[in-house]
């Protein structure tokens, strides 16, 4: 009750220097814990630092990272998170497989899937902008997508067949495609959020929707753009995964929703919005992939791995909360 008081104690007209530093503290904490983890991983895990293993980690982090980065604007704008991540990315994956299977050229299929996903995302964005609870809206959209794909495929695995794109699971200049897309996409979305008018407005709406409204910033426009960016990320993730595996089904990408939210939280993006940067979500995804990889190499059971992943999220959220409280207290 006393923490966020307007006339906080002890601050003279000169104010306190601590606040801004605390705001920048979290990324440092996150990077430091990543460094500690990597060192620990090297100590206890044979082969951890091999090129193959590191590349595997990044490749595994890439899909989660792309979607987490894409969801960052939604979260930053104060619309919390989507609970339909798995189903949406799966729909994109199945859609791409089917289009390639029909013999569509790669570029057309890529374009169609992105356009389709953006359309689906915009519908959700419109509903959220109209005041529907974003968590429930995305959950419902996910259920509809899953049900529809499930009915249309009859539970069957859909395949690309011989038309499978050669670039699927491939490399560009020695860099695996997923990692390249992750890096470029993260850069683009991070710049969008930090250097564009709509990005700034997204963060301000998340920081305080009422103040944003008084300042003439449109919540609807911000929400629509956030959902559009999110949809592009979902489409990219689905397409990359589809191209790499050449097949998909309604049950594909199980657990992606949790991993993406975990990456976002571990990356230190405020769940209530208004603070954080998309690159942090990518960092969170890598951090989780490192932990997950260490556990696989050290023979943790799947249940154990999930439990530890959950524990990491809880630890991160508690830590972030502490940092924020300290900042509020000055």
């Amino acid at each position: 009750m006393t923490a966020p008081r307007a006339d906080a104690p002890a601050a003279g007209q000169a104010g306190r220097p601590g606040g801004a530093e605390a705001a920048r503290l979290w990324p440092i904490v996150a990077l430091a814990s990543l460094a500690v983890l990597v060192i620990a991983a090297m100590a206890v895990t044979p082969n951890f630092l091999s090129v193959e293993n590191l590349r595997g980690i990044l490749r595994n982090a890439a899909i989660v990272g792309i979607v987490a980065v894409a969801m960052a604007p939604v979260t930053l704008s104060g619309s919390f998170v989507s609970l339909g991540v798995t189903q949406s990315a799966m729909a994109a994956m199945v859609g791409f497989v089917v289009l390639i299977g029909w013999g569509w050229p790669d570029w057309l299929a890529v374009g169609a899937v992105i356009a389709g996903m953006v359309a689906i995302g915009m519908v959700q964005g419109v509903l959220v902008a109209a005041g529907l609870n974003p968590v429930i809206t995305t959950l419902a959209a996910g259920a509809i997508l899953f049900g529809t794909v499930s009915e249309l495929t009859g539970g069957r695995i859909v395949r690309m067949g011989p038309a499978r794109p050669a670039w699927g699971g491939g490399e560009v200049l020695g860099i695996p495609l997923e990692i390249l897309v992750l890096v470029l996409f993260t850069g683009a979305v991070t710049l969008l959020m930090s250097r564009s008018v709509i990005g700034r407005q997204t963060i301000l709406v998340g920081a305080n929707r009422a103040t944003a409204a008084v300042s003439g910033i449109s919540h609807a426009r911000v929400t629509l753009v956030a959902f559009a960016v999110f949809s592009v990320g979902l489409a990219l993730a689905g397409i990359l995964n589809a191209a790499a595996f050449g097949e998909a089904m309604a049950n594909s990408l199980t657990g992606l929703t949790f991993s993406v939210i975990a990456a976002l939280l571990v990356g230190g993006i405020a769940i209530q919005g208004g603070a954080g940067s998309p690159w942090q979500a990518a960092a969170g995804a890598v951090l989780i992939a490192v932990i997950s990889n260490m556990m696989v190499l050290n023979d943790f059971s799947p249940g154990g791995r999930l439990a530890v992943q959950g524990a990491v999220v809880v630890a991160a959220v508690v830590l972030i909360d502490q940092v924020r409280r300290r900042r509020a207290r000055g």
Partner: peptide, 21 residues
């Protein structure tokens, strides 16, 4: 002001430019 006058956790610069960025 806390309700709809300022963006509490955001820098002064962003607060000042918010309506006319």
């Amino acid at each position: 002001r806390k309700r709809d006058g300022i963006f509490f956790g955001r820098p002064i610069r962003e607060n000042l430019t918010a309506p006319w960025i």
